[in-house]
Design a protein around this nucleic acid. Structure first.
Length: 269
DNA sequence: CAAATCCCCTGCAGGC
DNA sequence: TGCCTGCAGGGGATTT
């Protein structure tokens, strides 16, 4: 569920607690799907390192370390990064904890769809390499060019992180509603004008969501344990059967590429 | 090369 | 009350 806004909110709040601090101790959970880099390797590589910058590309957090290596974090569906003393050391869903002189950083993830990967100095990560432009940075022309040969529904294209990075199921529905574009429309058939509108809608919804601290549907939490509030501003996501906030027609819920999709048949063409 | 399908994982809601 | 099924979905791997 964490999409670009949730990851950006996490990044901003984590930055002062992580950047400039030296990792004194690394605690890892058992080997699992969560660890792209094996836990023992991760422990060895991170010990003693100081983080020099914390950036974000799409839904990935990228911690730059002082030896030139990088740590990639993805929150998956249920990932949480805490900078508090909670959760407890016995929490079975904690996979990684970094201890600083000033406190500690805990990566918790119930469903283990999240990922951590260590990238060697000068090295690359296939995951990072294949990402399209960040959803907050992509231009209408870039978007138009990237959609041109995709004969798939526009909603499906927006979810493809190789097209643009950061849009997930919630904000795809919200952006398409704001842009009055039906999720089922073939991506390649969007005009340049439609791409301008869509690009603006994506930006606007993401900026608003960041301002509201992201959306907390079930699992997303801020590093201090707080919740986001943007779920209260969702216009269509999760509202199948309810009246359209713009025209009053009944919002529809369909399944598109295995994802629940919400839209207004009257407003979105 | 594009598109479709399956699967990773766990908690929770709904049905009976 | 308790068991079972279905569903939530990011994204990588595999198949068509």
């Amino acid at each position: 569920m964490p999409e670009l806004p949730e990851v950006e909110v996490t990044r901003r709040r984590l930055e002062p607690r992580w950047v400039g601090h030296t990792i004194e101790r690394v605690t890892v959970g058992p080997k699992s799907y969560f660890f792209v880099t094996p836990p023992s390797t991760l422990k060895r590589r991170l010990q003693g390192r100081t983080t020099t910058a914390l950036s974000r590309h799409g839904k990935y957090l990228v911690a730059q370390l002082d030896d030139g290596s990088r740590l990639l974090c993805h929150l998956g569906m249920t990932g949480q990064l805490f900078a508090t003393e909670e959760p407890s050391a016995t929490d079975p869903h904690v996979h990684l904890a970094l201890s600083f002189a000033s406190g500690r950083l805990v990566f918790r993830d119930v469903r283990k769809f999240g990922k951590v990967e260590w990238i060697a100095p000068g090295g690359t990560s296939a995951r990072l390499e294949k990402l399209g432009p960040d959803a907050l940075a992509i231009t209408p022309d870039e978007l138009h060019a990237r959609l041109r040969k995709r004969r798939i529904p526009i909603k499906t294209a927006l979810l493809d992180q190789a097209v643009l990075a950061g849009v997930g199921n919630i904000y795809a529905d919200e952006a398409l509603f704001r842009a009055s574009i039906r999720p089922t429309r073939v991506a390649a058939r969007l005009s340049r004008a439609a791409c301008v509108t869509l690009c603006e809608a994506i930006r606007a919804v993401m900026r608003s969501a960041i301002r509201a601290g992201g959306s907390t549907i079930a699992d997303f939490r801020h590093p201090d344990g707080g919740s986001g509030a943007y779920q209260q501003n969702h216009l269509v996501y999760g509202k199948g059967g309810a009246p359209c906030p713009a025209c009053g027609a009944e919002l529809r819920r369909i399944v598109l590429s295995q994802r629940s999709t919400h839209f207004c048949v009257r407003c979105q063409k």
